[in-house]
Design a protein around this nucleic acid. Structure first.
Lengths: 141, 141
DNA sequence: GAGCAATAATTGGTGACGTCAATAGTTGTT
DNA sequence: AACAACTATTGACGTCACCAATTATTGCTC
């Protein structure tokens, strides 16, 4: 009989949970949650994105994007702009406040990752990241 | 500005989600979910365990354990027995049916893991598992 | 150019899940 | 004998993933 942690998939599941919890705890003081942060980080790479695009790239349901962008707009971190070529679409862009927030929290985010990856040396972290990326590319954005 | 997948913690979070979804899909036909499966697998390693112990080792809230063991009892995969030395405690043990279920689904579980780790060669999987184990030992059971 | 399928954002509902507070029964301690 | 600590349990609340339906708009097609 295989042990509890003999399965890589199960390990991933459990560690993913813990990772999400750590991130959410760190974001709590900002009034945001992990999902908001993911949207912000994605917006920072795109110079404006359709909500449909956010949904596809982040893997969140379109209906989830609505509320997330709502919250970010309320905080002044992002805003919806009409798409010039398609009036169905909204283009979500990062505001200057949003950019500042990302700058301010960047270091704290790193601390969280450090805590999570505690027992790993730099080489181990590098290796882990590379392996996860290879899995993620197969299905995730 | 760091990219979306530049952060190992976030990657872990997203892949953990996907892993959980895959496992749940595979378990759906059995009427169980991932959490039940985790309990069964843990029970298979212990020859009887207090609910309190299940909670601590699996990281689920004590109140969650109640429902999980209820379900497993209904399916005949586990049963509660009174603890001889402490009448507050119940000892949860795997039944023969539960053991058979684990045997039957073991191979299907491996298939799920294979799907998840698709792009990785055996050496990569081995390395990933070792790295995850080292992280897991620091906090998880 | 009128009708129609497809699409973007949105709303609403359902079930799983993590978390916390409270309770009943039991144990150990003082 | 009284009281703090502990086990299992119940209940409530908010978040989240998932799915169906709706509105406004676009592009296709006949």
């Amino acid at each position: 009989m295989r042990g509890l942690h003999a399965d890589t998939g199960y390990l991933l599941y459990r560690l993913g949970l813990r990772s999400g919890q750590l991130f959410n705890a760190f974001l709590q003081e900002s009034g945001l949650r992990l999902r908001h942060y993911a949207v912000l980080r994605f917006l920072a790479t795109t110079e404006g994105s359709l909500q449909r695009e956010l949904s596809a790239r982040l893997g969140y349901d379109p209906s989830a994007i609505v509320g997330l962008v709502d919250d970010l707009e309320k905080l002044g971190f992002a805003e919806r702009r009409p798409a010039p070529d398609d009036r169905r679409s909204r283009i979500v862009v990062l505001t200057e406040n949003g950019r500042a927030f990302l700058r301010d929290t960047d270091e704290a985010g790193r601390r969280v990752t450090n805590e999570l990856l505690g027992p790993l040396d730099p080489a181990g972290r590098e290796a882990l990241h590379a392996l996860l990326l290879r899995i993620a590319e197969d299905g995730l954005s």
